[in-house]
Design a protein around this nucleic acid. Structure first.
Lengths: 127, 127
DNA sequence: GGCAGTGGTTTCCTTAAAGTAACTAAGTTA
DNA sequence: TAACTTAGTTACTTTAAGGAAACCACTGCC
């Protein structure tokens, strides 16, 4: 039986049944955060997204967008132009999450040098 | 040739060579964020961590802790007790990151219901 | 001597995520 | 008519992550 979000919070985030952990699991893939970050400032079309998020394949982009749409984080809007235009954008819910994602990105930008230094030091000691 | 963090920031986070993306990649596994969240308030011993973070195996816990230690986010301290005690704790760097992790966890706690509702609606439409 | 507890490592296997490439469809241009 | 664009899907393969179980060393306890 699934616990409610409230119960989960009252117990612990580390429980397997906790929905919070489900969300964390969902975002912890290779591309979701990157895509949401790209959508932060403006709606972006499929192929533009594919060009901007370097290295992602058509298949995985499509899959990931579908998941994000299913989770209510992203909208998909089709325009009957020729060729057809499909625009992806963050929902209101998606925008509330993107603030956190941005702070994660900021952390990475500001601390990447410390992380790389730590890695070098660790590797030197554990040669 | 590896770009510097500054160059990366000036260009874009979405580039494959960007170190920021390396950090995002590293954190986007199944357990890292969860472990760091558990270490947030106090140092925790190996087996305690294993019991608290439900579902993680001994091997994966050990691997993940090593990665976090290598990245300079977690320290490992051995006490010569019997049986031996090994305590894991966040570094100063790790603490700066844990604030962001906490906000991610908060987001999940507050919005899980919206996400689940969106999923139900999506599944109903795409039956 | 044998079991318990600590904190791991090693091996083997399964599974899920991701990559590659080819294919579709609709319409526009040359 | 053939090629190009958009936005995908499908089939197949590869890779990486994770899980299961057994093993190690150390020592105290009974």
């Amino acid at each position: 039986m699934m616990e409610t979000a409230t119960r989960c919070q009252a117990y612990n985030v580390f429980s397997q049944a906790c929905p919070t952990r489900m969300v964390l699991d969902r975002l912890a893939d290779k591309w979701s955060l990157l895509i949401m970050d790209r959508l932060r400032d403006e709606p972006v079309r499929f192929n533009q997204l594919r060009r901007d998020v370097e290295g992602i394949s058509q298949k995985v982009l499509s899959q990931t967008l579908k998941k994000l749409e299913r989770d209510g984080l992203v909208t998909r809007q089709v325009f009957a132009t020729v060729p057809v235009t499909v625009e992806y954008a963050l929902t209101a819910l998606g925008h509330t999450l993107s603030n956190t994602i941005e702070s994660l990105a900021h952390w990475a930008e500001h601390n990447i040098d410390s992380v790389l230094a730590a890695q070098r030091e660790y590797d030197a000691v554990n040669a």
